Amino acid sequence: MEETENKQKNDEIMEALENVIDPELGIDIVNLGLIYGLEIEGSKCTVTMTLTTMGCPLSDMINNDIHQAVESVEGIDSCDINLVWYPIWDMSKMSRFAKIALGIHG
């Protein structure tokens, strides 16, 4: 039962994160492939993610948007962001939608 609940909560959080837009690319962070994983413990969610480049600062705006999105999901009261640089992000992690939106073919 708990595994099913976590799967549903995972899906709800990912859906909420689709509303967080990378300001440089204008595409949401889920379709860009920046979200590497979610870990839910009780009412806390840890988002493991990366950025498109190391020089790209996690701006306060994106940080706040992630917290708001995750904490908007019923049953989630807090959010931690685990920023990682491995595996390195590349365009292959983007969804088909993101590639089309950015005019990338292949």
Rank of each mutant, 00 (worst) to 15 (best):
M1Y: 11
E2N: 08
E3C: 06
K7S: 07
K7T: 08
K9Q: 06
K9L: 13
I13S: 09
I13E: 04
I13T: 04
M14E: 12
E15A: 15
L17P: 08
E18F: 12
V20E: 04
V20A: 07
I21M: 08
I21S: 02
P23T: 00
L25P: 11
L25M: 06
I27N: 01
D28T: 02
D28L: 09
V30E: 06
V30Q: 08
L32Y: 13
L34I: 09
I35Q: 02
L38P: 01
L38G: 02
I40A: 01
E41Y: 06
E41R: 11
E41L: 09
E41M: 04
G42D: 15
S43H: 15
K44D: 03
T46A: 05
T46K: 06
V47L: 00
T53L: 01
T53F: 06
M54G: 13
C56I: 11
L58Q: 00
S59G: 15
I62C: 00
N63Q: 15
N64P: 02
N64H: 10
D65N: 13
I66G: 02
E71G: 12
E74L: 08
I76R: 04
I76V: 14
N82S: 14
L83K: 08
V84D: 01
I88G: 08
I88L: 10
W89Y: 12
D90C: 11
D90G: 01
M91D: 07
S92G: 11
S92I: 13
M94V: 05
M94Y: 02
M94S: 07
S95R: 14
K99N: 05
I100P: 09
A101T: 11
G103Q: 03
G103F: 01
G106E: 13
G106Q: 10
